[in-house]
């Protein structure tokens, strides 16, 4: 589904990613872990098409297509979804209008008829239940006045509405209390299928108790320095990142 080869990315001349290689197949869950500043969020944002970054080398292929030349909206319509680390508040844009526009853009791309207001509200009700999204929130402007946890729920709610093929969860667990974490994880698990894949970017092992990964990768200074199964996350939780840093010849 997604193939990343030797990806090098810099921002304002500073190299952030330094030769990433990653293969993701349908049905898989990949966790990307690593200390602060290792490049995890950069990777997530580059995949979603944020334009602040410069790709200096390498290639990204998604469903057989070159992803790098694609506009963010085209990536979204083709099934890539980024759950933002810091979802943006957009006063004056009502949630319902925003969501309906997004859903209908996806439908248009697939050659389906747009949903009427009534049909959309029905779909919305269904998906809201999945992440226990409050109606009071969907009556507001996008993310306006949402708490940290509500913003993250809202991301997963959007994911449920847009039914992506490749979901990238960028530190979706940060700022969540344990109940919210469970709800969000439940939502993500409910949306899992053999046809879609998920990348979970996180600092902590905690989320991975709920969203169990098939592969765990450790990112360090812009490179994947270790890949293993889910047990790696537990090991990291226990020992921290220092031993990996040492293994890679870093001073700790």
């Amino acid at each position: 589904m997604l193939s990343i080869k030797n990806l090098c990315v810099s921002i304002e001349g500073k190299e952030i990613l330094n030769g990433i290689n990653l293969e993701i197949k349908p049905g898989e869950i990949h966790a990307i872990m690593g200390p602060n500043g290792s490049g995890k969020s950069t990777l997530a944002n580059v995949l979603a098409g944020r334009e602040d970054y410069e790709i200096t080398a390498g290639e990204i292929t998604y469903m057989g297509e070159d992803l790098m030349e694609m506009a963010p909206e085209d990536r979204a319509r083709k099934g890539i979804f980024l759950s933002f680390q810091y979802p943006v508040e957009i006063p004056g844009v009502p949630m319902v209008n925003f969501l309906k526009t997004a859903v209908n853009e996806h439908r248009k791309f697939k050659g389906e008829k747009p949903l009427t207001a009534g049909e959309f509200l029905k779909v919305m009700r269904e998906k809201k239940a999945l992440v226990e999204m409050d109606t009071e929130l969907t009556n507001r402007s996008v993310n306006e006045g949402f708490s940290g946890g509500e913003k993250k729920k809202n991301e997963i709610f959007q994911m449920a509405l847009l039914e992506p093929k490749l979901s990238i969860l960028d530190e979706t667990d940060s700022g969540l209390d344990i109940d919210a974490l469970r709800t969000v994880a439940h939502g993500v698990n409910a949306l899992r299928s053999k046809d879609n894949a998920t990348i979970v970017v996180t600092h902590y092992q905690r989320l991975l108790d709920y969203i169990v990964p098939d592969h765990v990768h450790v990112l360090l200074k812009g490179r994947i320095v270790k890949s293993a199964g889910k047990e790696l996350a537990l090991e990291l939780e226990e020992k921290g990142y220092d031993w990996i840093k040492k293994e890679n010849g870093e001073q700790v």
């Binding site: 963010p72 979804f81 933002f84 943006v88 006063p91 844009v93 526009t101």
Partner: peptide, 22 residues
Amino acid sequence: ALFYLRSRGIEEKQARLIMMNA
């Protein structure tokens, strides 16, 4: 905000319109 809207499949021109309306 523009990137947020686009990342949900909304075309850039449309996203700008939404922002102006907002």
